[in-house]
Design a protein around this nucleic acid. Structure first.
Lengths: 352, 352
DNA sequence: AACGATGATTTCAACGTTGCAATAGCTGCG
DNA sequence: CGCAGCTATTGCAACGTTGAAATCATCGTT
């Protein structure tokens, strides 16, 4: 059915090894021979057998990408970029959806997956860094957005504390003082939301504003619906109403804006909103959404670079790197300057 | 580093072949031997090398799934089910996102992917069935939702014409007469939207309602935004305003409902809406969305069954099957009976 | 006791590729 | 002419697994 090196070799009148050299391009081959071999390859439609190659090389050229949710815009976008960058390295990506299920995350490492993947990029929800690292001693792993797992595995993330600080400070500089935070997730093990909450409080304190626990809202997931629910809850609570919200994801922010609209609260006039992730939907929302934009392409690049280092020089003793991808605050309509008393706008102290 | 059959064999004091028999469970092995071997396997943490197995068997145990968009809820949900069903067959799924790019679709078939995958499930946007089938003579392919590709490849889809007919008839039976259709996509090659439009017109004609071309709206993609735009356009066109809309996807429907709300049109009182796909968001929308619900699990099962048949009995001459997955109309709040004059409600003739 | 039948286990080879070492062909220099 | 120093090419072996066939052990039957 499909042809092998031997078939091509026979047709071109050379040895199989020479064909291999032409295909891999590594060794020197005379121009004339190369041409003849190439013709034979084209005529027979030869494609290297990856199984054989893997068997020989001990590598499969396949890496895994485990994300909690395929249908989350942030992860979908990131997955697309990782696939794209992987193609540049001639790697194939197997995408796996864990749905935050500890069992699914564990199975990825212990199951036969471990034999088919050269490495794994995982955004853990249910498992701690420790458990991940110990489960898969032999498999190179890169963690996405996991809280400092000192010494367990490589890690790529944005500086969540600073990013949250900048977002909050931006709101402060617009003259907002009653700033709520929506998106805490104390039940997850990856600690991302803790870091964002920390940055949020830091910015408030520096500006002389005392954080109010009742304005820090916990959510179950980061979806629109949770944002809408949290916002409704804030508005209906009967207490003082915030004039700004920092949400820990764009999806939450879109839910918040939707609910604000429902309840007749105008954004940004009465309520400024900042999101996190810079997803497509936010760019076209109404109003367009101010957000913390992690450099997703850079995240993808760094993660693959880490993986490549581990795979090609399996020096177990190299200490894990902890890489920080850049981010920037993208200011759009949802935090436009409000026309109120302008005297207080400059009081907020910018983040360092 | 990792142990092989030979290592296990040495430890258990048997031949490599016997270990292989224990692992595969195929041949008869004495209970005592099996126990000893199993112990050795556990102690060494042996895992079969898939590359070697593939090389020997000529199969990889990996199938491809090519969908246009990972971030579309319908495809994400379907992908999840396919992965789940594939696990039952001990298959691994590689998910690839084509973004409706002809080049990406073609590369999947001609590139090295063809060597690593045992089969491919693809939902084509850019390529025609002909081109797909001819590009990949040797690779078993199952098409999802492609218009009758008589004799080119296996195909799994719902009966789009009937489904659209039922959805439209449902609206007619609620007394609606001014029914628009949103979601035509004449630029795509898969013909799905043509079939739905056909069912829509068929239902109208049977009820004695003449289809109006100006109420058949073309969209660029099936996203919320396109639905919202199309709806705004309908409302602002200055002509008569529809009292119902049949949209070709739930996402479009959600966009339509959003825009209706914006413009002060009440759903379902002034405008009934039916979607297609039965995605999660629609079940929790406001109001909850009446929709055509394709049996996604059945689609996944059928697609995998087709693939299995082709892979395990590569009898090229077996004619391609054209399977229809069941669907049902799920009636929710977006098409609730309106309190208007009730005399006309029964005029509509139900679909056969 | 010899023999066939059955079951358990082993041996051998092959899948397609590439690292390594060896060989063949050529050029230029002493 | 002979030989070192190249380049281009080849042969061999091995990666880990499994199909096919061979061997060995055991038991029941004649």
């Amino acid at each position: 059915m499909s042809s092998s090196l031997k078939d091509v070799a026979a047709r071109a009148g050379v040895s199989a090894r020479t064909v291999s050299n032409v295909v891999s391009g590594s060794a020197r081959v005379a121009a004339d021979t190369r041409r003849r071999v190439q013709e034979a390859i084209d005529e027979l439609g030869y494609r290297p057998n990856l199984a054989a190659r893997s068997l020989r090389a001990g590598r499969t050229g396949i890496i895994g990408l485990a994300i909690p949710e395929l249908h989350s815009p942030y992860f979908a976008e990131l997955a697309g970029l990782i696939v794209e960058e992987a193609r540049n390295r001639a790697w194939t990506v197997i995408i796996d959806q864990t749905l935050g299920d500890a069992e699914a995350e564990r199975r990825l490492l212990t199951g036969s997956g471990g034999r088919v993947m050269d490495g794994l990029i995982i955004s853990p929800w249910a498992l701690t860094a420790q458990e991940l690292a110990s489960t898969a001693r032999s498999l190179p792993i890169v963690l996405l957005g996991e809280r400092s797992p000192q010494g367990f595995a490589d890690r790529v993330a944005v500086d969540n504390v600073s990013a949250a600080d900048e977002a909050t400070t931006h709101l402060l500089m617009q003259g907002r003082r009653r700033i709520a935070a929506i998106g805490l997730q104390p039940h997850l093990h990856n600690g991302t939301s803790d870091l964002r909450a920390e940055g949020y409080r830091r910015a408030l304190r520096r500006a002389g504003v005392t954080p109010r626990p009742e304005w820090e809202r916990t959510v179950n997931t980061l979806h629109r619906k949770d944002g809408a629910l949290a916002m409704a809850d804030l508005l209906d609570s009967g207490g003082e109403i915030p004039d700004a919200v920092f949400t820990f994801s764009d999806e939450l922010a879109l839910g918040v804006m939707h609910m604000a609209h429902q309840k007749g609260v105008r954004v940004p006039e009465e309520l400024a909103v900042v999101g996190f992730d810079d997803i497509e939907d936010g760019r076209y929302g109404r109003p367009t959404l101010t957000t913390v934009s992690p450099d997703k392409r850079q995240i993808a690049r760094l993660a693959l670079q880490c993986l490549a280092d581990r795979i090609y020089s399996p020096d177990n003793e190299v200490s894990p790197s902890d890489l920080t991808a850049p981010h920037r605050l993208v200011i759009r309509a949802s935090t436009a300057q409000r026309p109120g008393p302008s005297g207080r706008q400059l009081e907020a102290v910018p983040a360092t």
